[in-house]
């Protein structure tokens, strides 16, 4: 099943909690999430860790409707209703997928500025999964 096991989740905690990417020492490309071999030069396995700012711009998004969520998100969808999932272009280059929070689906627009916040994603087998979501940057909400 498409199931994120606890060990699989744990291995990615530096990315999920701290937005830690890998900068290729050969070509400088920031790989986030990490790849085995640099995504850009496709040669180097030599990386250094780099903490991303979490600031970015919405490239595209969708609004997952009630009753359409994966089962581990059914509680969120039941109590919270629809939720937004976006592709965000981080200022440092990588594009990443995450939920939006602290905003209403109707307010979301392609090109909107957002920043990462660490939130609770879901709980499964009694274990909470935390991870980054994005919320609108204040300047964007204020126009």
């Amino acid at each position: 099943m498409a199931y994120v096991s606890v060990p699989l989740y744990k291995r990615t905690i530096p990315q999920r909690y701290g937005l830690v990417g890998l900068r290729c020492k050969k070509c400088g490309w920031i790989n986030f999430p990490p790849k085995g071999v640099c995504k850009n030069c496709k040669e180097s396995l030599d990386f250094e860790k780099v903490k991303l700012s979490g600031k970015g711009t919405i490239y595209s998004y969708t609004v997952i409707s009630a009753a359409a969520a994966p089962p581990e998100f059914s509680k969120q969808e039941k109590y919270g209703g629809t939720y937004v999932v976006a592709l965000v272009d981080l200022d440092e280059g990588p594009r990443i997928v995450a939920q939006l929070t602290d905003c209403k689906p109707g307010e979301v627009k392609i090109g909107m500025r957002v920043k990462a916040v660490l939130r609770r994603i879901y709980e499964d087998e009694g274990v909470i999964r935390y991870g980054f979501k994005f919320k609108p940057q204040e300047e964007d909400l204020n126009g």
Binding site: Q76, Y79, G80, T101, D102, V117, L118, R119, R120, I121, I128, Y130, K133
Partner: peptide, 13 residues
């Protein structure tokens, strides 16, 4: 707190 906020995420914030 919102559904995705708890004492850990708030504390971190």
């Amino acid at each position: 707190a919102d559904l995705d906020e708890d004492v850990m995420s708030m504390g971190l914030g």
